[in-house]
Design a protein around this nucleic acid. Structure first.
Length: 401
RNA sequence: GGUGAGAUACUCAAGUGGCCAACGAGGGCAGACUGUAAAUCUGCUGGUUUUUACCUUCGAAGGUUCGAAUCCUUCUCUCACCA
């Protein structure tokens, strides 16, 4: 059996905020002593089909609860997605089509179960009960909150002050999300810090509807991207997608800075807090090279989203290419005509964007043919097979014939 | 609705008739050094094999001029103050 104190430490690690720690402790105790399970709710809006590591921070924490008696309620917001959560964006969001929402939801689940234990998870769709709520149900739900309270929400306040339109339906969104917690009788709900307002709503509504419990709220911070500064996001291109190839994923993780590595450990690793502390100490005392620590992290995460063998393979490949300066095994082959101008050929096979760029790279010595630096930017290719390399990571095999 | 300010490359931001493919900073890419870390130094950062040249670009469309990012006209959008 587990030790409550250790469990609490692991749960609290890297959280941004926990509301009602006392109840949290009680839930754990109740499980340990009486084997009583409890519900952990995590919701997602199936608005975009694929997720990156930033999204998995919350899931990682949710998965931890499954070790300690938590039954996860994986809530697919198929109903609420059609309204659109106003979070972050200062414009009214376009509602999504039903088919897209369902399709996205399926993709999500596939990815989510790489982290969560399927046996201890219940998947629910909120259209199941929200569809039946009806007008009177919605109105009585609305009676629980005031406009002033709604405007406390940072995002709404800003928009109201700046006179950016707020649709009434957007007010309803948090209410519905909160109502989900009433219906599901959740004991704990997790979400990002940006969900603070919505999470609170669930707690308040549970009280208002008198279901006999108020959920514990756990908010997780937003994960920084590869640059270590801005939050991980697709549009900034600093993300690691859970569907990235093992090779890419491994390489991307290894490229993060040493500092941010610990952040990733805290937020993404399945290691216990104790183990991470030990590792930190060994690194700072010089017993373990920081690169080894980073390799282990990269292996752990890559394994999670593919398999042990594939992660291993990614590492070997990486070591080969970058530590020993070898050529990767699985590079693509392209065919070009004999006599082609090198710069043009590089553009044709997609290694460069323009011949101007290719010429610049050649001039700077970034282009290698068969591991030899290319000097002559006017080079015409003669028949044969060559391995072309640009910079450290772009490779191609060229068949000239 | 009224008045004023503005729109320049990935972002910020100089440039107010020719020296402008457009200063500078950030970011990005590449080279050296390394652990594809950080820090540092260096180069590049519109396109085209006419490469000390040519072509396209400074919100959009017209115009003035030998010549326009720069001047004029109209339009579109953004911001600030007032109502």
């Amino acid at each position: 059996m587990f030790n409550i104190e250790d469990a609490l430490n692991d749960i609290k690690r890297a959280t941004a905020e926990i509301i009602d720690e006392k109840r949290l402790e009680k839930l754990l105790k109740d499980y340990k002593e009486n084997g009583k399970n409890y519900f952990v709710k995590v919701g997602f809006d199936p608005t975009s089909p694929d997720i990156h590591l930033g999204h998995t921070v919350v899931l990682q924490k949710v998965a931890l609860f499954q070790k300690y008696g938590g039954i996860v309620q994986l809530l697919v917001g198929d109903f609420t997605a059609m309204i659109g959560d106003p979070t972050g964006k200062n414009v009214m969001r376009k509602p999504l089509k039903k088919e897209d929402v369902l399709k996205n939801a399926l993709t999500y689940q596939e990815q989510v179960f790489k982290i969560l234990d399927r046996e201890k998870t219940i998947v629910v769709h909120n259209s199941q009960w929200l569809n039946d709520l009806g007008s009177s149900g919605i109105i009585s739900l609305c009676m629980n909150q005031t406009v002033a309270r709604m405007l406390e929400r940072d995002d709404f306040e800003k928009r109201y002050k700046s006179k950016t339109p707020i649709a009434i339906s957007e007010f309803i969104y948090p209410l519905l999300q909160g109502y989900d917690s009433v219906h599901l009788k959740s004991d704990i709900e997790l979400g990002g810090t940006d969900q603070k307002f919505n999470l609170h709503m669930g707690r308040q509504l549970q009280k208002a509807y008198d279901i006999g419990k108020e959920q514990v709220l756990i908010m997780m911070p937003i994960l920084e991207g590869l640059d270590g500064v801005a939050k991980m996001s697709k549009s900034l291109k600093n993300y690691i997608g859970v569907n990235d190839s093992p090779k890419d994923m491994y390489a991307k993780i290894l490229s993060i800075s040493d500092e941010i590595m610990w952040r990733y450990y805290d937020l993404l690793s399945s290691l216990s807090t104790k183990e991470i502390e030990e590792l930190k100490q060994k690194v700072s005392s010089g017993n373990i090279h920081p690169k080894i620590a980073k390799e282990n992290l990269a292996l752990e995460i890559t394994t999670r989203f593919s398999s042990k063998e594939e992660a291993r393979k990614a590492k070997d490949e990486f070591d080969n290419v970058f530590s020993k300066n070898a050529i990767p095994n699985d590079i693509k082959t392209f065919e070009v005509e004999s006599g082609s101008w090198i710069a043009k050929a590089l553009v044709d096979i997609g290694l460069e964007n323009s011949t101007s760029q290719a010429r610049r790279d050649i001039k700077q010595g970034a282009v290698k043919i068969d591991s030899q630096k290319l000097q002559d930017e006017q080079l015409k290719l003669t028949s044969g097979e060559y391995v072309i390399q640009i910079g450290k990571r772009k490779f191609a095999k060229l068949k000239v014939g």
